[in-house]
């Protein structure tokens, strides 16, 4: 063995001919060859799945985040509408100045103490 490559002039044996029909038969019996439709391709593609997930996440964020931090969020808008209604009702009854302010603010976040004071004011008025 004088050559640098001991395998020079040699080659490994080829796959036996009997193997081919066995493998091809298992191909036929295992699966029907049919073209993948577009949904299968999308489902099989990791990139497309990530893109879909990313898009959904971005849409959710775009919907949720502004409504949390915006001054015109539905919750705040509803609160300010209720406050204005209370203000109109209180001024229609005849409350004015600091009493009106207090009445309106207590209707928004009324503690027990505020409610008692409000009751006393109303009773005194009557």
């Amino acid at each position: 063995m004088k050559t640098q490559n001991p395998f020079e002039g040699m080659e490994p044996p080829k796959a036996p001919a009997s193997l081919r029909p066995i493998v091809l038969q298992s191909f036929d019996s295992s699966i029907e060859f049919e073209s993948l439709d577009v949904w299968e391709r999308i489902w099989a593609s990791r990139r497309l799945r990530f893109a879909w997930l990313f898009t959904v996440a971005v849409l959710l964020l775009m919907n949720v985040v502004p409504s949390l931090f915006s001054s015109t969020s539905p919750l705040r808008a509803e609160g300010s509408r209720a406050q204005r209604r209370h203000q109109l009702e209180a001024s229609a009854i005849g409350f004015q100045g600091p009493t009106l302010e207090r009445l309106v603010s207590s209707s928004r976040s009324a503690s027990l103490k505020d409610q008692l004071e409000l009751l006393a004011i109303l009773e005194g008025r009557q």
């Binding site: 490994p12 044996p13 080829k14 796959a15 036996p16 193997l19 081919r20 493998v23 091809l24 191909f27 060859f33 049919e34 073209s35 993948l36």
Partner: peptide, 29 residues
């Protein structure tokens, strides 16, 4: 892509190489 000639074609191109590697690794035909 699921085309009928894909499987047999792939086998014909690679079977000898795969068989050789498996034979050299396992030592058994």
């Amino acid at each position: 892509g699921g085309r009928p000639n894909g499987g047999p074609g792939l086998y014909d191109l690679l079977a000898d190489e795969l068989y050789g590697l498996a034979l050299w690794t396992t030592g058994s035909a």
